[in-house]
Design a protein around this nucleic acid. Structure first.
Length: 423
RNA sequence: GGAGGGGUGGCUGAGCGGACGAAAGCGCCGGUCUUGAAAACCGGAGUCCGGCAAACCCGGACCGCGGGUUCGAAUCCCGCCCCCUCCGCCA
């Protein structure tokens, strides 16, 4: 959420920012409600002041045994006007906050301006794309031959867009989760967290999933809970409505499954593991002092990259342009892995600085010089599974149909060095 | 799920219709003392919103959340949420 003062005082700047994102936001309507809100507020507060004064006098006179009946009716009438104005005020505030919740964050000055992903900029690449002496297979064929993935049976119980990992496939999944958690905890200074996988609407609103992304989430109607689309939600909401007592920065890492309806994605490039309704992810979240958030964004990306380097997977880092930036982000880098089977790039991480946008929504603050102020929040995938498995299977496939297991994972798989075809 | 108890400032915790934004302690900030620190002593400080260009100025709101009673609610009533204890159920 943007600061209403900013919208009020630097309207043109906000307007330009929205235009650079390619979104239309009714700022005039917001400004109008803001004026109306303050108009009512001034009036009702004046009346409350009157009421407070009279009530105090009332108590004093009554205590002294004086006549109080003549005042009673006057104060009651003031009370009625207050009630009417308060109702108006609530209505205006409700509309205003609904409008404000729909305004996306302002892109950082360094973000390239552009209208869609074609204007994103590759900032660096790492690793060599392997030159295959044979025609590399796509991951779903490898998964089938090696007996790692079972889509038909997953569809039987859960519908399309779900997968069963089995045998070494399930083992690989678990090995990757453990490997990534270990690196981030032992070497990058993160604290490990295992949060709830369902959260309420307030939490979803705090991080910005609601109201915009409602149709992309699974909802448990009876309990009014949502399945988390990313661990960003439970991790960031740990400090919702709090003034953080300890030292910043706070760095948290968690593994969670992620649930996404992906409504409207049918028919796109969705075969196999590329776009599934449930996938695993190791997520990194930071709470930092405002002046350090951009250095923390750079280290966040580096920490995610570190995972991919250790796995020996070629990747590139892409800086998103204004038009491709997600709702709450001020700046964002995607990390993409090369997929030889698809001959394309797969996004496995998205690292964003939200500045104080989420902190304002979720009221996450810290204390400085005795005063509470908003923190900056960041998060990034460190990294997302499913697609990572795609990249490993495809990049490490051999001419004989087997897949070599990356060195760093072998300790997590009882020393297994390769997965052999079963059919 | 049932019964009982409880939710007060950064924390602990008093207050249970009017002078309460709220005692006290801890913690925090500033000062005195000290070579420095600690201790001791003195002083200060809640959050949000609004008035305004701004304020150490003024006003309003905030004692889990929402509603009600009242001239007036942290205090009384109702609903909800959360925590604790016991019982039930259960991986």
């Amino acid at each position: 959420m943007l600061d209403i003062h900013l919208i009020r005082e630097e309207t043109q700047r906000v307007r330009d920012a929205m235009q650079s994102r390619g979104v239309t936001v009714d700022l005039d309507s917001i400004l109008q409600r803001d004026i109306e809100r303050r108009r009512i507020l001034v009036e009702v507060e004046g009346l409350k002041k009157q009421r407070n004064e009279v009530s105090r006098k009332f108590g004093r006179i009554k205590a002294e045994g004086g006549d109080v009946e003549s005042m009673r009716e006057d104060v009651r009438r003031i009370g009625e006007r207050i009630a009417g104005l308060d109702a108006q005020l609530r209505e205006v505030e409700k509309v205003l906050s609904e409008l404000l919740l729909q305004v996306p964050n302002i892109p950082h000055a360094s973000v390239p301006v552009g209208k869609d992903s074609s204007a994103n900029q590759v900032v660096r690449s790492w690793g060599e794309m392997r030159d295959f002496p044979f025609d590399p297979l796509p991951h779903w064929k490898l998964g089938e031959r090696l007996g790692l993935l079972d889509f038909p049976r997953a569809a039987k119980m859960s519908g399309t867009g779900f997968v069963i990992f089995k045998g070494p496939g399930a083992r690989l999944e678990r090995a990757l989760i453990n490997f990534m958690l270990d690196v981030h905890v032992r070497e990058h200074g993160y604290e490990e967290v295992s949060p709830p996988f369902l959260t309420n609407a307030a939490a979803m609103t705090g991080t910005g999933q609601l109201p915009k992304m409602a149709e992309d989430m699974y909802r448990v109607v009876d309990e009014d809970l949502y399945l988390v689309p990313t661990a960003e939600v439970p991790l960031t909401n740990i400090y919702r409505d709090e003034v953080i007592a300890g030292e910043l920065p706070i760095r948290l890492v968690a593994y969670t499954p992620c649930f996404r309806r992906e409504a409207g994605a049918a028919g796109r490039e969705t075969r196999g593991l590329i776009r599934v309704h449930q996938f695993d992810k190791v997520e990194l979240v930071k709470f930092v002092e405002p002046e350090h958030s951009y250095e923390e964004l750079e280290s966040l990306v580096a920490e995610a990259e570190d995972i991919l380097r250790r796995l020996g997977l070629p990747y590139r880092v892409v800086e998103l342009c204004t038009g491709d930036l997600s709702f709450a982000a001020a700046k964002c880098y995607d990390i993409e892995l090369w997929s030889p089977g698809h001959k394309g790039w797969l996004e496995v991480s998205s690292c964003s600085n939200f500045e104080d946008f989420q902190a304002r929504r979720a009221r996450i603050r810290f204390r400085r010089g005795g005063h509470a102020q908003l923190v900056h929040t960041l998060n990034g995938s460190g990294v997302a599974l499913a697609r990572l498995v795609v990249a490993i299977l495809e990049n490490y496939q051999q001419a004989d149909g087997s897949v070599v297991i990356p060195d760093v994972l072998r300790a997590y798989m009882d020393g297994m060095e390769r997965i052999e075809p079963v059919i």
